[in-house]
Amino acid sequence: KMSEKQAVLLVQQALRKCFQVISQQEAVWQSTLSECSPLLHSLGNLGEQLQSCNTVALKKTPLKDFLDLEQCLKHKLIMAMECVLEKLSGKMAFLQKVRDTITNQVATVFQLYEQHTGALELSTITERSAVTPSLANMMEWLQDIERFYRRRYLKRKLLLQAIRDDDLSYIQALPESWNRVLEEKKQDLVQDILLKVSFFMETP
């Protein structure tokens, strides 16, 4: 039967690996997000252009002789919008992959922990040193991180899903709504936790 010490080492190893994956995935998440910004900007801009198209009574302007202009221009703008949305959904697929990778990695750690839970005393689980947080704390942080990714993905997904062709003011406000998700208080949650485990991750 596995000794308690061995069990602790196994779980710690899994935790270390998991935090490493999180750190890599967080970088992927951030760079993907930064690629989204210009796309959202164009989307809002196209929304504004379509809105202007709707506002102007072309018949009363110097463009009055171009009878099918409004229809043709709107068609082009909507095509352009669809093109941007397609690119955005490509980015969302990346974000989803980050979320799934983290969910899976966290699940792996919990599975391992469940397997060895019999060998672990409560005092061992809550034991911590200057450089190593307790197993209990670290497991809790993993759960926080996982929930966090699921929420931040979902919020963005919902923002994009609510887009409708005929709700142009929503589209125009989208870059701002998107940035507001960024500005939430818990934005630094992942970085904060990674900081707390940085010494732990460096110990072999």
């Binding site: 504004e48 252009q49 809105q51 202007s52 198209c53 506002t55 102007v56 072309l58 302007t61 110097p62 463009l63 002789d65 171009f66 202009l69 043709c72 221009l73 068609h75 082009k76 703008l77 352009a80």
Partner: peptide, 30 residues
Amino acid sequence: QLKQTIVQEIAHTDDRDLMMVYLSSWLYQP
């Protein structure tokens, strides 16, 4: 023909929306 009209008119309007229509018409070439 559309561009000719845009060039003639773009500096002669103060209507923000119409300017926008001129610009998007120029760029997206309907």
